[in-house]
């Protein structure tokens, strides 16, 4: 079982709530995924066209809300969003993300560290979204973040884990859970993350935009299970040379 900041999670798959075709599809897909923590975002209400309130679609007993600071371009904006999220009853868990460049949506390491330090002091449980930088991961743990969320590839790209060697170092050095986030586009990608020892994965786009999001959510849940079980079982060592699986003795009768 996974524990983050003293809270136990039975599922190592965390879900996102964006990009679903309807609130009902979102609800059904999240249920099928078995996840227990979901990310949500904060936005200004469009007064001419108020959207459905997604809070009412999600059972707060079943899901822990992880409000994100998406849209923040610097530490100040992220801190402001964090306080708004807490005021709105979103709890004190926070996915800290600071993405100044809308083209790449890559996280700003300096502003993320700055905001993390301030928010931890302010009693937030901070899960920072970062590039897969092992030194930054250490610095964030030093200031007291509850987990580290390195990216596999840029948000919404479905490219899988392009940062594998760095994520392996982050996991090796981690004193808090490592949640691989962003870019995980297929069940094989999350299986890979779990096989190398990630504690959990966060998936939004790949499930939300699938032809059948409910079925895809199930596939991701199975892949997380498979990858985790493989990690716990201990994978065989990689070798550059072939090693026969069948005995190499007892072949005299052929020659």
């Amino acid at each position: 079982m996974l524990t983050i900041a003293g809270r136990i999670f039975h599922s190592r798959l965390f879900g996102g709530t964006g990009k679903f075709s309807s609130p009902q599809v979102m609800k059904d897909a999240l249920e099928a995924s078995g996840c227990e923590m979901v990310t949500v975002a904060l936005r200004r209400i469009d007064l001419k066209n108020p959207e459905d309130d997604i809070m009412s679609m999600l059972d707060r007993q079943r899901y822990l809300f992880l409000p994100n600071t998406s849209g923040a371009r610097d530490a100040n904006e992220a801190v402001r969003l964090a306080h708004l999220a807490r005021a709105s009853g979103g709890g004190n868990w926070l996915k800290l993300e600071v993405t100044p460049d809308p083209r790449t949506l890559l996280p700003d390491p300096v502003e993320t560290l700055k905001a993390a330090e301030e928010l931890v002091k302010d009693d937030f449980i901070v899960l920072p979204y970062i590039n897969a930088d092992p030194i930054l991961a250490l610095r964030l743990q030093d200031v007291g973040t509850a987990a580290i969320m390195p990216l596999g590839s840029p948000i919404g790209t479905n490219q899988g884990i392009l940062t594998l060697p760095q994520i392996e170092i982050i996991i090796e050095q981690a004193r808090v859970p490592v949640v691989v986030d962003a870019g995980l586009g297929a069940p094989s990608h999350v299986a890979q993350a779990m096989e190398i020892g990630a504690d959990a994965v966060l998936v939004n786009t790949a499930i939300a935009v699938a032809g059948d999001p409910v079925k895809m959510a199930r596939a991701f849940a199975q892949a997380v299970e498979a990858g985790r079980t493989a990690f716990e079982s201990g994978l065989g060592k990689k070798s550059s040379r072939a090693e026969a699986s069948s005995p190499q003795v007892g072949l005299e009768f052929l020659r």
Binding site: T17, A41, L42, R43, I45, E51, I54, A182, N204
Partner: peptide
Amino acid sequence: LELIHFVGGG
């Protein structure tokens, strides 16, 4: 005033 609410997000 700013009126804010939760929306879907990742």
